[in-house]
Design a binder for these strands. Structure first.
Lengths: 156, 156
DNA sequence: TAGCTGACTTTGGGCTTCCTAAGTCAGCCG
DNA sequence: CGGCTGACTTAGGAAGCCCAAAGTCAGCTA
């Protein structure tokens, strides 16, 4: 790995996990729909209204989210109502919550005066934030992160 | 806060930190440029080539990133070369690294077979990942996060 | 001083995403 | 059985984002 970083023309572009993730959630509307889903929104028109997007766009994006396996679409029935479909997060979708939390934290710090929402730990009530952590349990400041070749590059 | 969640029509759309953050970094190219900046890329054509984007797009987005205060543009000179401009992350830009780390982690898990890059703690070499943590120091699983009204909503 | 190179800008065109407005369709309610 | 409502779809058009190809410009290098 002598010159691993210097060779990033070879690995930066192709097969980048960030680029692949952005193919799924790389647009504004999709992430806002996931935000709403994480708030517990389930119904079509609630999604559209709360995200501030038109119905055709909501329909298209929700369909794509189901196709990508981030949301599950399933029938439900409220008493005295007919059967409807609701959209709920799958595990794959829930695993994007750190992305949303990180975006929220940055937005709180730089893009908004007074945040409208605060995340708290259910058990102790303390504020929740996103942290980088190593497998040995240490907090890792951003400048102590090393970039190393991953398994996709090792057996060269 | 009796029915805080049920009232999210009032706070979900307007003034949402996530939505505001996405106005700055809500497109694919911008986040990939920040990824490259975090890898240490500084020169214009390296950005364009490694992100896989045309020069006009690179120029436009880099300019916007400078205007938004995520990148700093400053002159530098290599020996025997003329003065050039380089782009480096500001503190505001560096604070987006958790977003990139979270996207990478999700992409590693769901969108890619073998990741090309691995993040390691410089001191101990262990893998780095993104975690939710409360101010009291507890690890917080996603299902133990409470949503509470923030300071922007309190003095009603 | 003429050429070369890095760092862009300009031009012109295509695809994607979004909008509003209007239409469809299923099934409970009267 | 006719209307209403929730959940969409369709149609037509504006805006944004992207591309390739070509042009500009500054300042070392010969």
């Amino acid at each position: 790995m002598t010159d691993f970083l210097a060779q990033r023309d070879f690995w930066s572009t192709a097969n980048c996990s960030i680029a692949r993730a952005l193919e799924v959630v790389g647009n504004r509307t999709t992430l806002l729909l996931l935000r709403e889903a994480s708030f517990g929104t389930r119904r079509f028109d609630d999604f559209a209204r709360r995200v501030g997007v038109s119905e055709p766009v909501a329909a298209t994006r929700l369909k794509q989210l189901v196709a990508d396996g981030l949301l599950d679409r399933r029938p439900y029935r409220e008493p005295g109502q007919r059967t409807r479909d609701e959209y709920v997060l799958t595990a794959k979708g829930r695993d994007l919550l750190p992305v949303l939390a990180a975006l929220r934290e940055w937005g709180d710090a730089y893009a908004v005066e007074e945040p409208s929402v605060r995340l708290a730990h259910h058990d102790c009530g303390a504020a929740v934030h996103v942290a980088l952590r190593c497998a040995a349990g240490h907090d890792v400041p951003a400048d102590q992160v090393d970039l190393l070749p991953g398994p996709g590059l090792l057996p060269s």
